[in-house]
Structures are given as structure tokens and as C-alpha cells.
């Protein structure tokens, strides 16, 4: 009996903490957006630094993962399609899957692991070594100083990286289509372009596939940066606290990416 109430109590406590943290993260995000007009120019140097950190350093990983994802997709889907005598429509599948779903998701996962975890660790270390307190003493808003540049940078870089990953995925798919399925590159490219052009809706110059992917990437960039920074700011208790902050950040990012990702798809394609 005692252990049951204890367990429930612990679960309740964990739930309340999660809700607290979610509220905290939303608050951080709102504050960062509010500070944006006044502080963006003043902090342009930090934003540029972060653009580099968020965009250039993960680029090789995104490129390699994108390329091979396209190749794996082409191989797996291609074999099935070849059995049905439909090998040539491989590029329709690859384009749609990559641009709509896999590209943004994959990129956000990579960014969570590489950039998000680093954000949580950096800010967490600052939090446990009184540096955030010191900023407050200098009347510097830590959200404007630390969080805002990171959110801006990841919002800009996630769609770009995702796009690069998708394009490389299509190229990888094309290579496999040519070498394993004997689909001519010209046919592959033509089918790829028609599949994107024949989307049911256009958003400006962009076909729906690419547009939804970009929307998703921007939202993912916001999620990863906000969740990671919030976890860092909440860190307490020395090196162990920093470790815990990184773990919380990565786990929460993964969960939120998959859940929010589903609802964005649902909103566009239901």
C-alpha cells in the first residue's frame, strides 16, 4: 500500500516537473521572440556565430545521412517496385518521402544530437557555474543573450540543411536507381520533377511537398533550440546537473519532434 502511494506520488511529481518545464520552455520562447526586434541587430555577432555552429558544422553529417537515406530508400522501395514492373516511378516515391517527412525529421534528429545537446551543455555549464547569475547582475537578460541567437540560427539553418539533405537523398536514390534498377537518370529526374510539380497545391513558387517540409523544418528548429536552451537554463548541481540537462534535452527533443511532426503532417495532408 505504502509503496503504491509512493509510486503514484513519484509519478505525479515527475508529471508536474514535466509540465513545469514545458511551461518554462514556452515562456523562454515567448521571451526570445519578444526580444528579437530590439536585440537582433545588437547581437548580430552572436547570431552569426550560431549560424556557423548550427549550419556549417553539422553539414557533412547531414549530407552523408541524406545521401545514404536516399540510397536505402531507393534500394528497398525499388526492389518491390521492380517486381511490379514499376521501377521507373521510384523517383516519385523518393521525392515525396524525403521532402515531406524524412528530410526534416532526419535533419532535426541530427541537429538534436549534435547542436541541441551542445546548447544544453553550454548553457547548463554556465548555469551551474554562476555565469547566468553574473549575467543577471550585469542586467543582461540571459534569454536575449543566450537563447535568442540560438533560436534564430536554428530556425534559419534547419530548413536549409533539410533541403540539402533531401537533394542529396534524391541524388543517392538516382545513383541506386541507375546502378541497381537500371532506371535512366533522365527518366529519374523527369519523374522526380513531375511528382513535385503535380502536387495538389502550390504555395507561391513552391510545390506542397517542399513547402510542408520547410514549415516542418522551421518548427523543428524552434523546438530543438528552445527545448535544449530551456533544459540548460534549468540545470543545477554541478557536472551531474549538466549531464542530466543534456539527457533531458535530447529525450524531450526526440519525443516532441515525432509528436509535433505527426500533427503538422496531419494538418497538411489529412
Amino acid at each position: 500500500m505504502g509503496s503504491l502511494t509512493e509510486t503514484l506520488e513519484r509519478q505525479g511529481h515527475a508529471l508536474r516537473e514535466t509540465i513545469d518545464h514545458a511551461g518554462f520552455a514556452v515562456g523562454i520562447f515567448v521571451r526570445a521572440v519578444r526580444r528579437l526586434p530590439a536585440d537582433a541587430f545588437h547581437r548580430r555577432r552572436f547570431i552569426l556565430d550560431q549560424l556557423y555552429v548550427c549550419g556549417i558544422s553539422p553539414l557533412p553529417v547531414v549530407a552523408i545521412v541524406g545521401l545514404f537515406t536516399g540510397m536505402i530508400l531507393a534500394l528497398q522501395v525499388g526492389i518491390e517496385l521492380a517486381d511490379l514492373g514499376q521501377a521507373e516511378s521510384i523517383s516519385n516515391m523518393i521525392g515525396v518521402i524525403l521532402f515531406r517527412e524524412m528530410g526534416p525529421f532526419m535533419t532535426a534528429m541530427i541537429l538534436t544530437a549534435s547542436v541541441g545537446s551542445a546548447m544544453a551543455a553550454e548553457i547548463g555549464t554556465m548555469a551551474v557555474s554562476e555565469e547566468i547569475d553574473a549575467l543577471e547582475c550585469l542586467s543582461i537578460d540571459p534569454v536575449s543573450f543566450l537563447v535568442m541567437p540560438r533560436v534564430v540560427a536554428l530556425c534559419i539553418m534547419t530548413p536549409l540543411l533539410s533541403f540539402v539533405g533531401c537533394v542529396l537523398g534524391c541524388i543517392g536514390g538516382g545513383i541506386v536507381a541507375k546502378t541497381q534498377l537500371s532506371v535512366q537518370p533522365s527518366i529519374y529526374v523527369r519523374n522526380l520533377l513531375t511528382s513535385l510539380e503535380s502536387s495538389p497545391q502550390q504555395f507561391g513558387p513552391l510545390p506542397e511537398e517542399i513547402f510542408t517540409g520547410l514549415v516542418k523544418s522551421v518548427v523543428f528548429g524552434l523546438l530543438v533550440s528552445t527545448i535544449s536552451c530551456a533544459a540548460g537554463l534549468k540545470a543545477e548541481g554541478g557536472a551531474i546537473g549538466v549531464g542530466r540537462a543534456v539527457r533531458t534535452a535530447v529525450v524531450r527533443c526526440f519525443l516532441m519532434l515525432i509528436i509535433i511532426g505527426y500533427y503538422i503532417s496531419w494538418a497538411f495532408f489529412r
Partner: peptide, 29 residues
């Protein structure tokens, strides 16, 4: 906080700014 300055026990400098930028920080801000 403008009137009362605090020297932290650990120093609490911003790690990714040089010493000069750290010292300039309160004035720049």
C-alpha cells in the same frame, strides 16, 4: 544592479568571449 556590482567567487566570466570582451560587456550592454 547598476549601483551594486558583484564579484563572483568563481569569476563567472562568459567563456566564449575574450577577456577584453568580458570586461567590456557591462558597458557594451
Amino acid at each position: 544592479r547598476r549601483q551594486v556590482a558583484y564579484l563572483f567567487q568563481t569569476g563567472a566570466l562568459v567563456n566564449w568571449l575574450s577577456v577584453r570582451d568580458n570586461v567590456a560587456l557591462p558597458l557594451v550592454e
